[in-house]
Design a binder for these strands. Structure first.
Lengths: 345, 345
DNA sequence: TTGCATCGTTTAAGCGCTTAAACCAGCAAA
DNA sequence: TTTGCTGGTTTAAGCGCTTAAACGATGCAA
């Protein structure tokens, strides 16, 4: 047995050991004042020898900065959310940027309980600002945080909002995907849209619709389906689509998970991809290259999204201001052509 | 333009608004003393109306608890590390457990710089304890934290150590995998081991060796290769193995990424899996079911590992003690049979 | 009536830092 | 010799909480 928490040295201990005041030690640490060389050296040595490190908490209390950014995944269930590879991909970007600015990341695990309860918690001094990833559409999290004056940046949220936002250009991506199919000669193109509580799917649907319209291809009602990530629903819908008397020759899936699901479903009923059916996804998650055929998709620059959002947030924290209703930063998607698309039979 | 950070109300404001002392407000919040009903109600109302939430930092300073657990991915590069799906899987377990205990998670982004620099930073009051995931073998992080009295639990670390550890039973898993192949009739079984700075691969190798020994199958030197996650090295090694005059009929890969790489490499040179070559992986990451054929593998209970480690850590923090040199907690792996293994040709 | 719990609340110290303001040589200028 | 700087350091207040200890008002037994 061993007792934990033998108390770490404080600034007082260092000051005493060196025969100087606490203020002097503080100035040595923060370099905010010129000190005599020998004093500085003496203090630095003591710090090293006594393995002193200032308490972030005490520091935070007096300086109002904890050098930590909060990430709220709480708008929807944090655990489930983390399981989506795209969330970890964004998180990687966040960590990269935070790391190079000497900041740590705190994951808020509590689910969003509405502005009156949750918002104040995100302002409890633990973090200098908050990054909100993929808030549910109906959540008031962004406005609440903004209202409380918490530096906030959102990723994959619905605009316009007073909070700066970063996202891939969903509209452009969807249009790109659809136009790719049209260019290949497809005209019967179906679209599978994702969970309706996420912001990304509206502009994607619009991109699909506009691309069709622009090519003067009428959109059939039965070709636009609301799906979700669950395999069963997706499989059923794919089979249903392919069972139509005039089945689509191509399916644009709102994300890769669905795209892969479509491929599996098609294969399961003996429909050849891309021979009889072309499939395009969205996101470019790692699994795309593990399906046969590899999934053609629209790549989201997740890492950049995370980095950019974090950069904006750090900027806000530093300057202490931001423009109301800044335009969303939309990063460009790219078409990644693989093996799941070809001309129609 | 808008200025951020309009100051949140403090306990003082609430006290003033209610005409009571700050202590009373504190007691209302923490319930550590009996108060008259009307006082309590009055304070609670004010708290709600003024949207007050206590500063975690101030609280942390006086009570030495920030209700936050630190996760150090810093032993190796945090960003790269996060990209491994198994890290996010463990993280999910950590978040699950933390969430149900009302704790948040802080990701430490700084790489490990040696005990004298990094260890004190992890004791800066920002977190109540630290979870170290997959420290590099040569790192002294565990001993340093232990020496400083920081509540610490390690995942995927090498034992024995004074720090409590949680991991899958790597030895049992590897042995299970190898025995599965032996049972199928294989005798020429190769083993591809992973990066040598991670703790998991030693017991896995030993499990393989012992299984072979137990079956009285001599292990050929050329069948045991040190590989890593990079596709190029793996591909080359697979092709090299299959090019031997007496090639292996089965390959046990130290993890799924390598296992999938082996399958791809085999397919690329026209070797049928599992017809001519059986492959087993380790981990059971999602991608296993996206390869053709689906990868047979040893499943690690990542979620449970994360949960268990977090549970231990919370326990340590609560009690303030832990036994020196506790036995590592090893969770049971399971064999997941899919399509990449069959009897030898 | 006095003494003594009991209950509800306040006082005040302390957590470990930062930082404006005060202080105190030592030195140059007048 | 006095005055006024200047550079180096200390003083002390404050950040927003928690909590042991003190306090005052009641109620009750002796």
């Amino acid at each position: 047995m061993r007792t934990l928490g033998n108390k770490p040295p404080t600034i007082k201990d260092i000051a005493a050991a060196c025969g100087v005041s606490e203020a002097t030690v503080s100035y040595v640490i923060n370099g905010k004042r010129v000190l005599r060389d020998d004093t500085r050296l003496r203090v630095q040595t003591a710090i090293r020898e006594m393995r002193y490190h200032p308490s972030a908490v005490a520091r935070g209390l007096s300086s109002k900065r904890l050098h930590t950014l909060g990430v709220s995944l709480g708008a929807i269930d944090a655990v489930e959310f983390l399981s989506h590879t795209y969330v970890s991909a964004i998180l990687q970007g966040v960590v990269t940027q935070a790391q190079s600015n000497g900041l740590n990341i705190t994951l808020f695990t509590e689910p969003w309980m509405g502005s009156s309860i949750s918002a104040p918690r995100l302002r409890d001094g633990r973090t200098d600002g908050v990054l909100v990833i993929g808030p549910r559409l109906e959540s008031d999290i962004l406005d609440s945080l903004h209202g409380l004056g918490v530096p906030t940046v959102a990723v994959s949220a619905e605009g316009p909002s007073a909070v700066p936002m970063v996202d891939v250009d969903n509209y452009a991506g969807a249009r790109m995907a659809t136009e790719h199919l049209i260019k290949l000669g497809h005209r019967r193109i179906a679209y599978l849209t994702g969970n309706d509580y996420l912001a990304s799917y509206k502009p994607r649907l619009q991109g699909y619709l506009d691309a069709m319209k622009h090519a003067a291809i009428p959109v059939r009602d039965e070709f636009v389906l609301q799906s979700d990530f669950s395999g069963t629903l997706m499989t059923g819908q794919t089979i249903q689509l392919l069972g139509l008397t005039e089945p689509p020759t191509a399916i644009f899936a709102g994300n890769d998970i669905m795209g892969i699901g479509v491929i599996e479903a098609a294969k399961s009923i003996g429909v050849d991809v891309p021979g009889q059916l072309s499939v395009v996804g969205f996101d470019d998650i790692g699994a795309c290259v593990n399906v046969t055929p590899n999934l053609t998709t629209i790549r989201q620059p997740f890492h950049e999204i995370g980095m950019e959002a974090t950069k904006l947030l750090i900027e806000m924290i530093k300057t202490g201001v931001h423009e109301d209703a800044a335009k969303p930063v939309l990063l460009a998607p790219t078409l990644v052509m693989r093996q799941s698309t070809a001309g129609p039979a």
